[in-house]
Nucleic acid binder design. Structure first.
Length: 423
RNA sequence: GGAGAGAUGACCGAGUGGCCGAAGGUGCACGCUUGGAAAGCGUGUGUACCCCGAAAGGGUACCGAGGGUUCGAAUCCCUCUCUCUCCGCCA
């Protein structure tokens, strides 16, 4: 959440931000609750002070009569404290539940808008390949090469799951390993993370574990959910900690499975591997000092570009518009790969996403640092190194040959052990 | 899963109803001392929230978490979580 002390001082800015993100939130109500909470706190604290003063009087030598009198008075105070606390609790529950929905501030240069078309294209790399044959989409290629079996998965798990077979298995592992080597060389600490997390942790990162629009699977009879990304587990790794500024920036690269409900997501652009309930991903997560988060954000995008340049995938970098940011993000850059099998003529498809969430998540997770006498929240950034399912789409579709075989980009060959896939 | 032990400040560790935000020690910071260092001596050393304010200040809470008993809880009771040891099971 944002710093709620700024609710008053930056009220108009916060309200404007909510509008530009196309969100609906009664900010006046939040402010009203804040004031109500404040006066209730004053009331209960005053009563507690009375109780403490009163208890001190009891320590003196007293006649039985006086003592009895004071006990009666004490009981009265106790009752008033109880009812004041109860009222305070009610107000706080509502206050924090509403205030927690206030989104992070947006970067002043982030494009304003609600739809994908409002995203700002920053640059392109590579040239979409011109085929001298009709390119196939990844579904067709994978079927013919017996790399992915969606039909069998339907029997076992239902739609939007899949089995990887043969070289696809090694591709999954190779892509992860390829990304990890690049990240390790850049000072990232490699991690394998739990695929589950407490719902409170997911919520702290900014995911809604419950509710109809939630993208998160919850586990019955526990307070756990399946993670949608290692951002959750990596971000919470330092929860509740007071970090030494000397160790910042701290860079983590974590492997996890990612589970997403994707309820209601269907249609042409969601087919095949593009939108699935489970996939493997290498995620970058960085904790920095506030003054370093913007440059670190650029660095993360640079790493993502390096990874996909190595895979020889044409892409463009997009500055995500405010309506598409997601509550925790201050600014977000997506990399969209060229996918020749997408739509009729090929199209761009998101393969990575790098967000600067500034102190928004750190405040929920209580990750702070102390510099001299100042205590502040760290800034947290996250970015996709490789989301295997989508990376695989782009490799299959971009590097297909007329005979249906697939060329493996040189950078990946050391990790796959083969330079092409053919039958 | 069963049995037992435990959880106190940056760390170690005392504390079984009011004198405890918490002894003592270590560490850390500053000062004295020294040619310099060590030792020694002295002083200081948490977080969150609320009020007021230019600053200073005042208040409340926090001894794993949540509930309860009491005029008053680190201390008594209940529930939970976590850690450690032993047993069982297991990739």
């Amino acid at each position: 959440m944002i710093d709620l002390r700024e609710l008053n001082t930056r009220f108009d800015e916060i309200a404007e931000n909510i509008r530009s993100r196309n969100m609906d939130l009664d900010l006046d109500e939040v402010l009203r609750l804040q004031q109500e909470r404040s006066s209730l706190i004053q009331e209960t604290e005053q009563l507690r002070q009375q109780r403490n003063d009163h208890a001190k009087q009891m320590k003196q030598k007293l006649s039985a009569d006086e003592r009895q009198h004071l006990i009666e008075a004490g009981k009265g105070i106790k009752g008033r404290i109880a009812s004041a606390e109860e009222e305070l609790k009610k107000v706080e529950t509502r206050y924090f539940s509403l205030a927690g929905r206030i989104p992070n501030y947006a970067h002043p240069d982030a494009p304003i808008g609600n739809e994908e078309k409002d995203n700002l294209e920053l640059r392109r790399w590579g040239t979409p390949r011109v085929f001298d044959f009709t390119p196939k989409d990844h579904m067709e290629l994978a079927l013919e090469l017996d790399l992915i079996d969606f039909d069998a998965a339907v029997k076992v798990t239902g739609t939007k799951f899949y089995y990887f077979k043969r070289e696809a298995v090694l591709m999954d592992l190779a892509l992860q390993r390829y990304a990890l080597d690049i990240l390790a060389a850049k000072g990232f600490i490699l991690m394998m993370t739990p695929d589950m997390a407490k719902e409170s942790v997911a919520a702290g990162i900014g995911f809604q574990p419950r509710g109809s629009e939630s993208n998160i699977y919850t586990v019955e009879d526990s307070d756990l959910c399946l993670v949608g990304t290692a951002e959750i587990t990596l971000g919470a790794y330092h929860a509740q900690e007071m970090m030494d500024p000397e160790v910042l920036p701290r860079k983590y690269a974590g492997i996890s499975h990612c589970f997403r409900k994707e309820a209601g997501a269907a249609g042409q652009y969601s087919k095949g591997l593009y939108r699935v309930h489970q996939f493997s991903k290498v995620e970058m997560l960085v904790l920095t000092l506030p003054e370093h988060s913007e440059s670190m954000h650029q660095e993360l995008v640079g790493i993502e570009e390096e990874i996909f340049q190595g895979l020889e995938i044409p892409y463009r970098v997009v500055d995500t518009c405010t309506g598409d940011l997601g509550a925790p993000a201050y600014r977000k850059y997506d990399i969209e790969a060229w996918m020749p099998g997408r739509g009729d003529l090929g199209d761009w498809g998101e393969i990575t996403s790098a967000s600067n969430c500034t102190d928004y998540q750190a405040r929920n997770l209580k990750i702070r640092y102390k510099r001299n006498q100042d205590i502040e929240h760290v800034h947290i950034l996250n970015g996709t190194a490789v989301a295997v399912s989508r990376a695989l789409i782009s490799i299959l579709e971009n590097h297909q040959r007329s005979d249906g075989s697939i060329r493996i980009p040189d950078a990946l060959v050391p990790y796959t052990g083969f330079s092409e896939i053919r039958r």
